[in-house]
Every structure is written in C-alpha cells, then in structure tokens.
C-alpha cells in the first residue's frame, strides 16, 4: 500500500508546490510589512494569505476527487488497476492519502494563521489582548466556553466531516462507473446519491447526539466516532463495487 500511496502523493504534488510557493511569497511580504510597519502591505498580505489558505484548503479536497475521477474515467486508470493490488488496497491508499493531505493542509494553514497573529501581537506588544479578544469573539459566536482542548476537538470534528464528504464523493463516482455503468443519467443519479448520503449521515449523527449536552465532549466523541464509521463504510463500499464490477 505504501507504494500506491507514494504515487498517489506524486500525482498531486505539483499543485501543492504551487500553493506552498504562493503562501511562502505572501508570508515573506507579511513579515516584511510587520517589521517595517507598513500597514497597507500588511493588510494586503493578510487578505492574500487568508484567501489563498481558504482556496487551497478547498482545492486539496477537490483535487482528491478530480484525481480519483480521472483514475476511473481515463486510460490512466490502467496504471492502478493493472498492478497486482486489490481494489481494497487501492482505495485504502487513496483514502489514507486524502486524510493525510487534508490534515496536513489544514494543520499548516492553521499553524500559519496562529503564528502570524502571534507575531503581529508580539510586534505590537499586545499578545494577551489579542488572545482575549479572539476568545471573546469565539465564545460569543459559539455560545460555549472556549478552551484550547475544546478548540482542538472542534477542529478535529470539522476535519472528520470534511474527510467524510470527500470519501462520499469517491463512493458516488464509483457508483456511476460500476453499478450504474450501463444506466442512462448515471452522473445525475450518482450526484443525487452523494447529496442523499450526506443528508442521511448528518441526520443520523444529529439523531444520535440530540439528547446530549450541546458542546460536550461526549457529543463531540459520538459525532466523531460516527463520522469515522461512515468513512470506513464508504471506503469499504467503494472498494467492494470496484472489486465486483470494475469496467475501465
């Protein structure tokens, strides 16, 4: 599986280099602007960093889906499916790569954001004020007490929901190229299936957690656990369809 993952990363490496290069340039601009206290440049670079980080985070997920779609719809699919690996291994490698890429991107962008805010605060000698203001805003928005463990828990939960949406997309694409292979409107049906799966999953999670205290660790744990189970089920279903009905 490691070999499969190696090539999976390699396929998507170019875009990551571009994203990192753009972020690097903007970060250098930002640091320079802070050091020389050029507020216009500072604001511009912050907006640029924020916009690029948001777009890149979205693009990383989309690229996982596009790469998978190409792997099934173009002749490049032979590169994977001619190798002596089961569909379970191939999908497993893709899912792990997706998780790792999304996690690293999210962690990198968040770390960069925190580092920049911290740097800004140190430069302007207002570290504690900035942290307190951020906590206050988050508390008012979420209606919960904001602590570092809670922030990390929420971020992990968002990450799991995000990964599950990507994996459901892979499942829907597979559906259209396997079980629905000979059906008309297969892309419409698979897209509707994608929407339906997402609605069903969030409803199930909602039903399972609606009696729990809002914002409690138990609620987060159950939501996260269920998301992980749905990710595993969707990965298994995707592999099973490919194993039984592959048609490239």
């Amino acid at each position: 599986m490691l070999q499969l993952m190696k090539y999976e990363f390699r396929k998507q490496m170019f875009s990551k280099i571009i994203i990192l290069a753009i972020l690097g340039i903007l970060e250098v601009l930002f640091i320079a602007a802070v050091l020389v206290k050029r507020e216009g440049l500072m604001a511009g670079s912050i907006i640029g960093l924020y916009a690029i980080a948001c777009m890149a985070a979205f693009y990383v997920s989309i690229e996982v889906i596009i790469t998978y779609s190409n792997d099934l719809k173009t002749k490049q699919s032979y590169m994977l499916f001619l190798t002596p690996n089961s569909a379970y291994k191939i999908i497993g490698a893709k899912v792990f790569c997706a998780i790792i890429q999304i996690f690293i991107s999210a962690a990198l962008f968040l770390a960069l954001g925190f580092a920049d805010v911290f740097f800004l605060a140190v430069r302007y000698s207002k570290v504690q004020e900035v942290i307190d203001a951020a906590k206050e805003i988050l508390s008012q928005v979420s209606g919960l007490e904001v602590t570092l463990p809670k922030i990390i828990t929420v971020l992990l939960l968002v990450f799991l929901f995000w990964v599950s949406t990507v994996i459901f997309a892979l499942l829907s694409i597979t559906l259209s190229t396997t079980l629905l292979e000979n059906k008309k409107f297969k892309w419409v049906i698979s897209f509707l299936t994608f929407i339906l799966i997402n609605i069903m999953v969030y409803r199930v999670i909602g039903l399972a957690t609606n009696q729990m205290d809002a914002g409690s660790y138990l609620q987060f744990a159950v939501s996260g656990g269920l998301s992980a189970v749905f990710i595993a089920l969707a990965s298994f279903g995707t592999s099973w369809m490919l194993e039984k009905k592959i048609s490239l």
Partner: peptide
C-alpha cells in the same frame, strides 16, 4: 495480475512521468 502483462492500445502512463519513471513504476509493482 502478477503473471499477466497487458499492453493497451492507448497510452496510459501518468503525464508527469519520464521514461525513467515508467521503469521505476513497473519495478515497484511487478
């Protein structure tokens, strides 16, 4: 698949690859 080598009529190697990479890919998997 460990014992069957198939050459399709269409090209199917990844675009980023060089001819050397193709050899590396086959060596990794077969």
């Amino acid at each position: 698949k460990k014992k069957i080598a198939y050459m399709s009529t269409e090209p199917f190697y990844y675009n980023y690859m060089t001819i050397s990479d193709v050899g590396g890919y086959y060596k990794d998997f077969f």
